[in-house]
């Protein structure tokens, strides 16, 4: 199925939490500042309802997104008040993909964990939470995965400052 078909289906089964979608478009020739948008279309979902949404898409017989390829986050810029949560879904039976995006406010970066739906999300969420400081509620094992336990800061945030030293080893 192409993106339009998938989106129509999501609308018609009333998947929980869907707030909109975005598609690539050509630049507007009238407006010089508008550069358009390239790449993949995606579905916008409310982060608080992401697990339900994933479950609904997993179990729907004509969508069947049974494999979560990736879950990650993005910090678009220092000024922006939102983090993005990006999920890539894959259906082995129907052979289609879907990109899902959630906007999560930076001040209160808390969202429910999707581990109950896709166990593959477990490590991805651990990585997200150490790199961006997102709390996944209901995660079975919320420790750091790549960074040491006592690491300070969230490295992939745009306002991260590199450490001066760690356990007596200078970083410069």
């Amino acid at each position: 199925m192409n993106f339009q078909g998938i989106y129509d289906r999501i609308r018609s089964i009333q998947a929980p939490g869907v707030t909109g979608m975005d598609e690539p478009r050509e630049p507007n020739p009238q407006d010089k500042k508008d550069k358009g948008r390239s790449g993949d279309p995606y579905v916008l979902v409310d982060p608080q309802r992401l697990p339900e949404f994933l479950e609904c898409l997993r179990d729907d017989p004509s969508l069947k997104f049974e494999l979560m390829a990736d879950l990650t986050a993005t910090d678009p810029s220092k000024e922006d008040g939102y983090l993005w949560i990006n999920v890539q879904l894959l259906s082995l039976v129907r052979k289609h993909r879907l990109a899902v995006k959630c906007l999560l406010p930076k001040e209160n970066a808390v969202m429910p964990s999707s581990v109950s739906v896709h166990r593959g999300a477990q490590w991805a969420e651990r990585e997200c939470s150490e790199m961006y400081g997102i709390t996944f509620e209901g995660h079975p094992d919320p420790r750091n995965i790549l960074l040491p336990e006592d690491w300070i800061g969230h490295p992939l945030r745009k306002d991260y400052e590199f450490p001066e030293e760690y356990h007596g080893i200078s970083c410069k």
Binding site: L147, F162, P163, I169, S170, C171, K172
Partner: peptide, 11 residues
Amino acid sequence: GYTVVKGVDRV
């Protein structure tokens, strides 16, 4: 590389 030791001779 924020986690990389800049040379093993520091250790």
